[in-house]
């Protein structure tokens, strides 16, 4: 192990972008209670915490509390506590994508009438392989298809999910929701 592994947990510089004054106070408290420092948005923060899906924050570094905003790197239930917020901020600052599970299991959400993005069964398999970190070659071997076909499916996934990178495709893909009947 390197020395870095034993370093104390990093305090992040976190900007808060809120939809109202009351929300600003709540988010600020959350950041503080999760052990980080609040800085201004233009003060090159490590991560951003927002409750406003329509705000113009750089989504690749922002954690959204609540609904909307497919493009956010992090995505938590609106009542997430400091521990979850801490984990999400650290993950996003490290370039990872976070998806809070409670959002997927809320019973009152409407069932999709007309799903907007439809993947083929093969595309779903390829997406799952991407999510597992497999290379194109490994994916091709696992699915018994050629690497060129894998590439073809990945291009199609990027197009359908409006994604520019594999990580973004996986992040958007996991929000394709499975329903239970």
């Amino acid at each position: 192990m390197t020395d870095a592994a034993a370093a104390p947990p990093l305090r992040l510089r976190v900007a808060v972008v809120a939809s109202s004054e009351a929300a600003r106070r709540r988010l600020t408290t959350l950041v503080t209670r999760s052990g980080h420092d609040v800085v201004e948005v233009d003060g090159s923060p490590d991560a951003i915490l927002t409750d406003d899906a329509s705000s113009a924050v750089p989504p690749a570094r922002a954690v959204l509390l609540g609904w909307g905003g497919e493009e956010f790197a992090g995505w938590l239930a609106s009542d997430a506590g400091p521990a979850q917020v801490d984990a999400a901020l650290r993950a996003v600052a490290a370039g990872l994508t976070v998806c809070g599970t409670p959002l997927q299991t809320r019973g009152l959400d409407p069932l999709p009438e007309d799903p907007q993005v439809l993947l083929t069964p093969r595309e779903i398999e390829v997406l799952a392989a991407l999510g597992n970190g497999l290379t194109n070659k490994e994916t091709a071997r696992r699915l018994g298809i050629s690497p060129n076909t894998v590439k073809f499916h990945i291009e199609s996934l990027f197009r359908k999910l409006d994604a520019a990178t594999r990580a973004e495709a996986v992040a958007k893909g996991i929000r394709l929701q499975v329903v239970d009947f």
């Binding site: 999709p112 439809l118 083929t120 394709l176 239970d180 009947f181």
Partner: peptide
């Protein structure tokens, strides 16, 4: 009613 299925909408090839 319940079937016991987890389902994902897909495009039929």
């Amino acid at each position: 009613g319940w079937l016991g299925l987890a389902l994902q909408p897909v495009l039929v090839p």
